[in-house]
Simulated assay, not measured.
Amino acid sequence: MPAGEVRLVFCNAPDRDCAERIARALVEQGLAACANLLPDCLSIYAWQGQVEHAHETPMLIKTTAVRLPEVIGLIQALHPYEVPEIIALPVTEGLPAYLQWVRGQTLPLDKSA
């Protein structure tokens, strides 16, 4: 997996405050270039044998393949759900300058410096 491959991560949070906390941490730690918080939505899903529904705040998180394991780990650490939705899709096309910006914002820190 080339380090520069851009990923779009989908994640729902139980409320806007939680989504903002996760998004800010990802960007501040250089794991994501950007996170968009969308208007709240109604999610209907199966959980532990029951059909549930909840109002949630969707997040669209832009990162790279090399940072994805860290993104997943941080979301899991900050998210209150037992099994948070974390789905990553490869970005195969886009404005080259934007994709390069995402790559530049998420470069791993050089541990030898």
Rank of each mutant, 00 (worst) to 15 (best):
M1T: 10
M1Q: 09
P2N: 15
P2A: 15
A3F: 12
G4S: 14
G4H: 13
E5G: 02
V6F: 03
V6Q: 05
R7M: 15
V9F: 12
F10N: 09
C11H: 05
N12S: 15
A13L: 06
A13N: 13
P14S: 12
P14L: 10
D15G: 06
R16S: 02
C18G: 04
A19V: 01
A19Q: 07
R21P: 00
R21S: 07
I22H: 01
R24D: 11
L26S: 07
L31H: 02
L31Y: 11
L31R: 02
A33K: 01
A33S: 12
C34W: 07
A35Y: 04
A35W: 06
A35F: 03
L38W: 10
L38F: 09
P39E: 11
P39R: 04
P39N: 04
P39W: 06
D40A: 14
D40W: 02
C41N: 01
L42M: 03
L42I: 01
L42W: 01
L42F: 00
W47T: 00
Q48G: 02
Q48S: 10
G49Q: 03
Q50E: 15
E52L: 06
E52Q: 14
E52D: 11
H53Y: 04
A54C: 09
E56R: 06
M59A: 11
I61H: 04
I61S: 04
V66F: 01
V66R: 13
V66A: 13
R67N: 05
R67W: 00
L68P: 02
P69M: 10
P69Y: 12
P69C: 12
E70K: 09
E70L: 11
V71P: 07
V71N: 08
V71C: 07
I72K: 11
I72W: 10
L74N: 01
I75T: 02
I75N: 05
A77F: 06
A77H: 04
P80M: 05
E82C: 06
V83T: 15
V83K: 07
V83L: 14
E85Q: 13
E85R: 06
I86R: 02
I87M: 13
A88I: 04
A88L: 10
P90D: 08
P90R: 08
V91C: 13
E93Q: 13
E93L: 12
E93P: 00
G94S: 08
G94N: 05
L95P: 00
A97W: 09
A97D: 14
A97G: 06
Y98N: 04
W101M: 00
V102N: 10
R103F: 04
R103Y: 06
R103A: 11
G104M: 00
Q105Y: 01
Q105N: 09
L107F: 10
L107R: 15
K111W: 14
K111Y: 12
S112V: 07
A113W: 13
A113R: 15
A113V: 13
